[in-house]
């Protein structure tokens, strides 16, 4: 108890502690925080989801489309491509849970690895900030045509680079191109839990 200061009180002096002791003892025991026994484990991917597999998307804007699986990103996210020219699905991230893996697989060894590396970085898909923010006046102005969305040319180039070799493989097999172009849907009497994919 050295911290504090000695003060003079009349004739004697006394050490006044910097921090006063509590007047009472706490009634309750101090609660111990619960130890967390969970750990973050890497998402386990299904065995059927090998790169090159043709998937059926089940959710989102492109639901029902058949696409080609390119790569696993972390936490159960898949990188897929249409190819864009065949079914309009661009390079895109999808949740592995909302996907059916078919048994059809194509060889994607020839796909440009550098571009895929670039695309699979976490901030590739983040939205670009708008350069010219619309003012309030522009919002209220009537009759003006809204600006058309411009696809970044870098994105389009990446898409082309990735799809190039896939397209040449797809072309080789009969019906494969039109297979990718058609969307999947259930018809009367179809039992998806009994079907083979």
């Amino acid at each position: 108890m050295s911290d504090g200061q000695t003060k003079q009180f009349g004739k004697g002096q006394r050490l006044v502690p910097a921090q006063k002791a509590l007047k009472w003892y706490p009634v309750d025991d101090e609660s111990q925080p619960k130890k967390v026994r969970k750990t973050i484990r890497p998402a386990k991917v299904r065995e059927t989801l090998q790169p090159g597999t043709i998937l059926i998307l089940l959710a989102g804007r492109f639901r029902g489309k058949r696409v080609v699986l390119l790569k696993h990103l972390d936490q159960g996210v898949l990188l897929v491509t249409g190819p864009f020219k065949i079914n309009g699905v661009p390079l895109r991230r999808v949740n592995a849970r909302y996907v059916i893996a078919t048994s059809k697989r194509i060889d994607i060894a020839g796909v440009d690895a550098k571009t895929i590396e670039k695309v699979s970085t976490p901030d590739y898909f983040t939205k670009e900030k708008k350069a010219n923010k619309k003012s309030e006046e522009a919002f209220f102005k009537q009759g003006e045509k809204p600006e058309k969305k411009v696809v970044a040319s870098a994105r389009a180039a990446d898409q082309k680079a990735v799809d190039q070799s896939i397209l040449s493989i797809v072309k080789k097999e009969e019906f494969l191109s039109s297979y990718l172009a058609t969307t999947f849907s259930l018809r009367n009497g179809d039992k998806p839990h009994e079907m083979k994919w």
Binding site: S103, K104, T182, K196, W197
Partner: peptide, 11 residues
């Protein structure tokens, strides 16, 4: 027919 895969069904 029951054991066809998705691509075979399409064909």
């Amino acid at each position: 027919r029951k054991n066809l895969t998705d691509f075979e069904r399409f064909k």
